[in-house]
Write a protein that binds this DNA or RNA. Structure first.
Lengths: 210, 210
DNA sequence: CGCTTTAATGATCGATCGATGAACAAGATC
DNA sequence: GATCTTGTTCATCGATCGATCATTAAAGCG
């Protein structure tokens, strides 16, 4: 076998002298994967090794390591919440069960992500303010409107509370925690489990599920 | 005011030359609090400072930092699962709703703990094998028997699955995550929220809740 | 007290950390 | 191809890490 030239077989990026924006983006991309794997205490020399560049180059694009971490936060938090969700949640032309199913399917497709899940947990443990802001924003713009819609749809005398919704939410998020933080086996079809949880939740308030 | 001697006012331990077992235990105790706060990358010098001893003393009792971390694991995982729970779960003289309420009340009182919650998360992110063993043990000895009991009590044609139970469990655990990992405000009376979640869960299988 | 034991300290090692600045070289322009 | 710009490397700094070991001094005992 053989005959092909083994030279330059590395599929890695060995090109040098990239445009600054491109290089900066490349560093952040790799930093997301790197910090997600080893934590925010990961060493810049190891990150540079993965990038195939020298450690000092990183500090040409980010003054301090903390600046790089902030850039990682910005990248990873971006596009994690869709602007379409408030509209979807309040679309009363569709049954609430369907709305919740679609919402949590989209939500799950965005947050059941290895890098996001772990960096969110690392930054939460580190006391980053972004976590609190994210969760507060989630509660105000998504859970509270969702609660209102469920109450409107509910004919039951007992109404759900925001904490009830947090409980449902936690049960769903826990799927991602089991998978990406604890690395435990999880269901092949999480949407099925999510729909069952939504169904149980709505059913207990006499609302039809998805 | 005054008149009292300010000398030796330090309530801290400044006594030297403790019995080895006592000193070792003291180090582990403080290490639990310390690592829970700053993570497993916490520095031994900072830990020694909190203990009021020199850094080198720590290495008289633990050959390596990893040994100390293992001791912290052992301490913090100890007594976290009660041997009484399997008996309680299978005690059919009591309604299943009551059994679940009592179980999760006891369970919550043990795991809704700042140090446990954070060290469990830190070690999970670090890939410690103890997390997987803990969760597997939890599933085998508690959730699976609980599932069996619910199925026995359920008269509904649709039976709960183990994943359904994980969803309930996750919703409950998420209370502790919100409190101790994300440091967000949580309900004053978590037991009330837990009982509501149990009630919704059992209700969806036509079983009376707590 | 004088002696022994050993818990605890103080000094320090080699490795590694984040960060800096001079030297180098790839690529564009003429 | 000579020149200039600037992305990248190389060498290195001071600080700090986990870990080691000789020294010190507190407690137990005759």
């Amino acid at each position: 076998m053989g005959g092909t030239e083994p030279a330059e077989a590395r599929p890695e990026i060995d090109r040098r002298r990239l445009p600054p924006e491109e290089r900066q983006q490349q560093i952040v991309d790799e930093a997301v994967r790197f910090f997600a794997e080893v934590g925010l205490d990961g060493k810049t020399r190891e990150l540079a090794r993965r990038l195939g560049v020298t450690q000092s180059l990183i500090f040409k694009y980010f003054e301090t390591k903390q600046d790089l971490i902030e850039a990682v936060y910005g990248r990873v938090y971006l596009e994690r919440i869709s602007p379409d969700w408030p509209t979807l949640i309040c679309d009363r032309s569709r049954p609430i069960g369907e709305r919740m199913s679609i919402f949590y399917r989209d939500y799950g497709s965005r947050i059941f992500d290895h890098d996001w899940m772990r960096i969110f947990m690392f930054s939460g443990l580190a006391g980053a303010e972004l976590n609190k802001r994210y969760l507060t924003h989630l509660s105000k713009t998504l859970l509270e409107p969702l609660l209102k819609e469920i109450r409107v749809a509910a004919s039951s005398p007992s109404e759900p509370t925001l904490e009830d919704l947090w409980s449902l939410h936690g049960g769903i998020v826990y799927l991602g925690i089991r998978q990406h933080i604890y690395r435990m086996p999880t269901p092949e079809d999480p949407q099925h489990e999510i729909d069952r949880a939504i169904g149980r939740f709505l059913g207990s308030f006499d609302v039809e599920g998805p």
